[in-house]
Simulated assay, not measured.
Amino acid sequence: MRIGAHVDSAEPLVEAAARGADAVQFFLTDPQGYKSPVPRDDAEQLRASEVDIYIHAPYIVNVASPNNRIRIPSRKLLMAHAKAAAEIGGKGLIVHGGHVGSGADLADGFTNWRKAFEYAAKDGGLPLPVLIENTAGGDNACARRFDDLARLWDAVGEFGAGFCLDTCHAFAGGEDLTGIVDRVKSITGRIDLIHANDSKGGFDSGQDRHDNLGNGKIDPELVVAAIRAAGAPAIVETPGGADGQTADIALLRERTGG
């Protein structure tokens, strides 16, 4: 079982060692900006490392948006980050499911997601798996409610889209964590990565506020059960720096046998 953490991008392998992590996730650029990634000086070390590398796309990427000024730059940014992630040996690029905004037709978001994959195919294809992540908030979101996730997968499943299950997002988004892996796999057929997070917000609160395992509103055994059932690598995106995340990784290792 590969278990790791979301870390600062400056020295991800140093951060991995500080946590005893098998995997790390980090941003390649400002998560709130549209800047494209630049080549990293440590690319060779990252490719050669035994630590699994995952890259998270900027939060502002929203390929579902009906707004051309958001959707089109988001498509381009997604491709740029996918290429940059592949260059450093990344195993996947995580991107939030996005939303269409108040008053818009959610069906347009699913269509726009399909167009994003078609756009990528015309640009030479995606060089690594894109892992769509479920989100906590937004009643007009493409991947908050699992009935909507099923509609999204009808649009993008044939392109080989991967899935990242965030336990905090699912709980805060109103999805019961009991048996969640079976429900997700009945829709997507796969879970490629788990974001193993507790939630400061309550069930169905719509609040994307992560907490350390056992400190929030989620029974940590439900997170452990999801990891066991999925058999997928897990990344903690929890607070407390190296100390907090080391404790979370230790808890998951102990209870999953990983």
Rank of each mutant, 00 (worst) to 15 (best):
Y54H: 09
V95K: 02
R71T: 11
R69I: 00
Y34K: 14
A120T: 02
V51K: 06
P37S: 05
G109P: 08
K76E: 14
A120D: 00
P127M: 03
A141D: 06
V51Y: 02
R71W: 15
T111Y: 05
I94K: 08
N67K: 12
L78M: 15
V95E: 01
L128G: 07
A64H: 09
S65T: 08
G109S: 11
S102P: 00
F110R: 09
A48N: 07
N67I: 02
G137V: 00
S65R: 04
G98A: 05
Y119E: 15
Q45L: 15
E118A: 14
M79F: 03
R69V: 00
G125F: 05
H81I: 12
G92Y: 02
K35N: 13
G138Q: 10
A136P: 08
A48Q: 11
V130R: 05
E87I: 04
E50N: 09
A120P: 05
N112R: 07
R40C: 04
A85C: 04
G89I: 02
L78W: 07
L46H: 06
N68A: 13
V51T: 10
P39Y: 08
Q45F: 00
H81G: 13
G103Y: 11
A116V: 10
N134E: 08
A121K: 15
G137I: 00
Y34N: 03
G90I: 10
A57T: 08
G124D: 08
D52E: 12
E44I: 12
G125D: 05
W113T: 04
N68L: 13
L128N: 13
G125T: 10
S36D: 12
N112S: 03
A121Q: 13
A120V: 08
N68D: 15
H99D: 09
L126H: 02
L78Y: 04
K122V: 08
N112L: 08
I53P: 01
H81Y: 03
D105F: 04
Y59D: 03
L78G: 07
E44V: 14
Q45G: 01
G92C: 02
A57V: 09
A86V: 03
A86D: 05
